[in-house]
Design a protein around this nucleic acid. Structure first.
Lengths: 201, 201
DNA sequence: CTTGCATACATACAGCCTGTATGTTATTTA
DNA sequence: TAAATAACATACAGGCTGTATGTATGCAAG
């Protein structure tokens, strides 16, 4: 009956702790707004003390940022999974957009990525995170479509920002109870409208 | 040398105090994120004590909401000023959109209406506020354009949400240093694309 | 006009939360 | 195996929010 600890390496221990904190953090950050989520609650959920948290992260915001970054990466992965093997540039955009909206239906993602993320981390930091993930996919899709002549030659950066925001709004609206079909139709309308503009010549 | 107070009515006193709190609140909520703005600082800026604040507002969030509501109303007024006397439905949309983006360049508006507002008040409350102001103008413009056949018959609610978000993204991007011309071009592209879709028949 | 009440605010207090400083135990390194 | 360091726990200081209580001024009735 002696309590033998398994003699684990520091590296493993740290990684496990970090993971536990990230998991607990995500669970609580999606359940309540950032401001109402306390570090005592987070570490209690992880079964440790605040000492562990402040050992692994500079402050509460740094933990939150790590959670957000992981979530953004997961969303981007969902998009990449469907993006390959699409015939037309426009088709790829539509398909990717729908994958994004679907991925955002996972509980908590709108709060993390669209509400608390921008407010807590700031728009610049949040854009930088997004630029490494979902937004990057959108930008590349738009640039490819423009290069192929399927979309008009609009400034890619601004168009990415605006269309990305439109996708975000669709995801948020759906979570708020809007009809999915309506948002899908509106997104199609926006993209096909651009395509029609390009076709007009 | 007697300190004669001017014997002011309660009604006037209250209104003046409320205004002072709103002004001080706006000044500080704009300078720093909501969470970093303390009620002691706000009342100090107004030259009063926290007792006055909690007499006029249920809590810090209620003061913030009042500030946000006033700001949203001011933005909507800027749009309405230019909206009348426009020839085509599409022209009115473009004109209104540009008025919105211009109005949003007033310092602090993006933080109040696009960052802290949604996070602090929640997306539902924020949409309700917006629906009474700028978003209402956009929705009416879209519905008019659809009715006139200038835009395709897409679901107006979803399209309003998405285009509204695109306008927001333009305003935010410009504040972050994006080229104004790029965002204007992209907005034009989106709206004219829809128009081209409708014209296609 | 004055007496009593309600309104408008100020002051005081309790509880919580964040970040840091310090202490302890386990692991790595020499 | 002894010293050094990493990983975490405990303890503390300061600040902030919301409430409870206190005070003075406007107001309405008699």
């Amino acid at each position: 009956m002696q309590g033998k600890r398994p003699r684990i390496s520091n590296e493993e221990r740290s990684q496990a702790m970090r993971r536990a904190l990230l998991d607990a953090g995500r669970a609580l950050f999606v359940a309540k707004p950032y401001a109402e989520t306390s570090t005592p609650d987070i570490v209690a959920a992880a079964g440790v003390t605040r000492g562990a948290l402040y050992h692994h992260f500079e402050d509460k915001k740094a933990l939150f940022q790590a959670v957000v970054e992981a979530e953004a990466e997961a969303v981007a992965r969902s998009i990449d999974e469907v993006s390959d093997g699409e015939l037309t540039a426009i088709g790829a955009l539509i398909k990717g957009g729908e994958a994004f909206v679907t991925a955002m239906t996972k509980p908590g993602r709108t709060r993390l990525l669209l509400l608390d993320g921008p407010a807590v981390l700031g728009p610049t930091a949040m854009r930088a995170i997004d630029e490494r993930h979902a937004r990057k996919a959108l930008r590349e899709g738009l640039e490819a479509a423009i290069a192929a002549g399927a979309l008009p030659a609009l400034p890619a950066g601004a168009l990415t920002a605006q269309l990305s925001a439109a996708f975000d709004a669709a995801a948020l609206g759906i979570e708020m109870g809007d009809a999915i079909a309506d948002h899908r139709a509106a997104l199609h309308g926006l993209i096909e409208g651009l395509a029609a503009s390009a076709a007009e010549r």
